[in-house]
Design a protein around this nucleic acid. Sequence first.
DNA 1: TAGCCTGAGAGTGTCGACAATAGTCAAGAG
DNA 2: CTCTTGACTATTGTCGACACTCTCAGGCTA
Lengths: 270, 270
Amino acid sequence: MTGATGAPGADAVARDEGPAAIRAGRRIADPPSMVALAADALRRMIFDGELAPGERMVEYRLADQLAVSRPPVREALRLLEREGLVVQVPRRGASVRALSLQDVYEITTLRTDLETMAIRLGVPVQDERVLAPLAEATRILEVNARRGAEDSAVEDTIRFHRALVALAGHGRLDEAYHALSLQLWLLMAMNRRARSSTESLVERAQRHRALFDLVRAGDADAVLAALHDGSSLSMLRLVGPLISEDGSPAAHAWFERVRERGTTAPDAPV
Amino acid sequence: MTGATGAPGADAVARDEGPAAIRAGRRIADPPSMVALAADALRRMIFDGELAPGERMVEYRLADQLAVSRPPVREALRLLEREGLVVQVPRRGASVRALSLQDVYEITTLRTDLETMAIRLGVPVQDERVLAPLAEATRILEVNARRGAEDSAVEDTIRFHRALVALAGHGRLDEAYHALSLQLWLLMAMNRRARSSTESLVERAQRHRALFDLVRAGDADAVLAALHDGSSLSMLRLVGPLISEDGSPAAHAWFERVRERGTTAPDAPV
DNA sequence: TAGCCTGAGAGTGTCGACAATAGTCAAGAG
DNA sequence: CTCTTGACTATTGTCGACACTCTCAGGCTA
């Protein structure tokens, strides 16, 4: 064997029965993992602007700040990297992701595509119960709009769209869309000042209520049309002018086309 | 002596392309990260069948086997979890992912959708140079087909499709497709015995050569048609009967429909 | 004999510390 | 005065160890 380790039973134990029994364990209370806690805290710091895009995230400093040791912070950073909120370079550590025009292009196009796929898969909804999260998200959106809660607008909108995608019952789709949503959130956080120039909270809530009604009616095409004309565009018009520095030629061409045509829908309806 | 350390062979496909690492200047030599090494080794062990799906992956045992300590193994497991090859439950450790019918459904549908998006974005290729990786992948596919190299068939095919998706120049699309490809690889590894029942290596190489020619001709629709009728179906027909145990109703319905219609293309051409 | 309780064993979660490396700044030479 | 070179500092990569939790086997009781 490798190594003269004194590890007891390292080679004597080969009994690995019952690995599939792990599946069903639904625990009543999640064990408070320091990793998850640290990840939540870091996300909040990023979205609240405490950590600016491009700013370095020094491990031991964050560990000190969160009152944990470095390993949990380290793993939390890996998680955020997986979500696209953080970039890590091998020997130079992590930093908050700074989004460019290319990123806006990628996020928006992929987001539109995934949403389209989700609607096509899930919108003549088979089981009425899966509509519940979407209904709840719609309700929250309306309540907070009436309250004039500006600071929860992004979060509420994202929750709605995630619930929309979840209609498809497609785990990998959910996961991919989730990461994209977080990056979109980061994008909004980067440009908070310009947010007042878009539609009002009430208008947004009404638009999403209309979307929900279309979903319940089962009209997938109408949902897609409303999606393309509405949310993506408003988001784009918002952040577009602010990030006009760099980007690939394809991204620039796409951006100009969207600006002219006023929609993020694909070229031909096909 | 310890033969476990000298196994960093999986450098062909499992490359982690650093997105922002290029910015600070290219590095002449990759810093030998134990995490990347461990991840490569674990991937190889999974794809080679040394680690069976569902089998537990005990951290300290793997660390001993790879002659490193637990932290690198731990982070490597997080990476593999991100790639969908490993599942982790909070206090119970990691295990090789066991794919079900639902997973086949999700992987195939999402894969088809992402490929479609990539072709639509990238296929009238603007810059001739981006065709080079695809041409190289095609060449490798043909060479190995002539050599009768069965064991590299999956890897070669995946390389081709990744190069195909890369035509779009869309980083997030590449990343999502990459994870999906690895899971597809795992799926093929799970069902290696049945692989002989599909088309021959030469036939596959010819089909991909035809795809490459269509791409170079700039005919996106033809590429999409060939993709839907070909690769996805052969893969599906292969693994479908073997994993008929569980799955969501939507997955079952989709699977039956694909079996009847003989294609993974969406319902209506629209 | 079947079910509950208890104890030991195994394995992950977390921690502090050491070594290695990239970045920075100052001093000296041309 | 500018460029090179050296050391210093800050920060990451890696390690071994400890504590807590979960699992499972064995014994006890009804």
